[in-house]
Amino acid sequence: MEWLCKLRVSRSGGNSLPDVSMLTRPLWILYIITSLAFLLLSSKDVHYSCSMMELTDELQLAFAEGRLSDGLNVQLVAPKTFTNHVEGLKAKLAELKNGLGWLERLDLTNEPAPAQPGTDMVGDEDIHDDFKRELTFYRQAQATVLQGIQQLQKLGVKTKRPEDYFAQMAKSDDHMKMVRQKLLEKQVSMEMSEKAKKMRELRKYGKKVQHEVLQKRQKEKREMMDAVKKYRKGQKDKLDFLDDKGPPNKKQKTGQKQEFHVNKKREFKNQKFGFGGQKKRSKMNTAKSSADMSDFNPSVHQTKHSYKSGGKKSNAKKKGPAKRPGKSKRQNMKSRKR
């Protein structure tokens, strides 16, 4: 009965009995509801299988000893134990050791070599951080190499392969060629991406500069116009703002001219469509050009004089400036004012 650990669960449904006979012996996860006394007393009505009778005997015994109580009894599965036979392991290790010298074994136990300063290797080890983990392995190997090579040289063993010693390698030459090719490809692609990144940044910076230049120019123009306005109104009597702003403006203009000199778009278009083109017949009049009135300026070409002389009189009377009233009207107006 050692397997029967007791677990009290709230009683369900008073003295109703579940069909216990359905449970087979090996299944043993038992649900025995109600007290054992009830089980025994009511055995008249319920027919139990042979195994059930054994079970009841067992339960009876347990109950008599006071190991059972009312309620739901459930078998608990003991937690799995994992063997760790330390003595056996040690004995086996002693048996396994063959007492060969270090030169036969070449084993070394090392802490990882100290990390290079500047690398972020401090902090807790995260096994999912691939880079960090691989670097610890690398450093461990490094420490072993540093110690092992020294130890071998102390024992008088050659460690370094001479340049003219040729032998079969673990990886074939073809394979190493492929490795080298892959490395090269990677390097090239890295360089390309870096270049593209730089260009992108430069373009961004160029745009910013252009924007600034435009704004500066607008500002200067505004200031100039303000100064001119003030001068016109008579608030300023000197024209020195022209001298002040003149030279730098000019300088800027020349600078801008130089900048505008290289117009990439224009160059490309010239290259694509050809520069200049046919000049023949380009100055001939066409129907369109003769109908073009865009350069007709009425204030220049349409003077008052020509209007008065050439226009109809009736029109001139209507549209002309207001005439002076007659004498009597003027006198009337004067008297009214008084």
């Binding site: 074994r105 070449l106 084993d107 070394l108 136990t109 090392n110 802490e111 461990q140 190997a141 420490a143 072993t144 190499v145 092992g148 392969r161 032998a167 079969q168 390698m169 673990a170 990886k171 190493m176 492929m178 490795v179 892959k182 490395l183």
Partner: peptide, 20 residues
Amino acid sequence: ELKMTGNCLKGSRPLLSFDP
């Protein structure tokens, strides 16, 4: 795998490095 760039003599004796 091509990302492993090293190579060694076939059959040279390895040093064995162990974690403490």
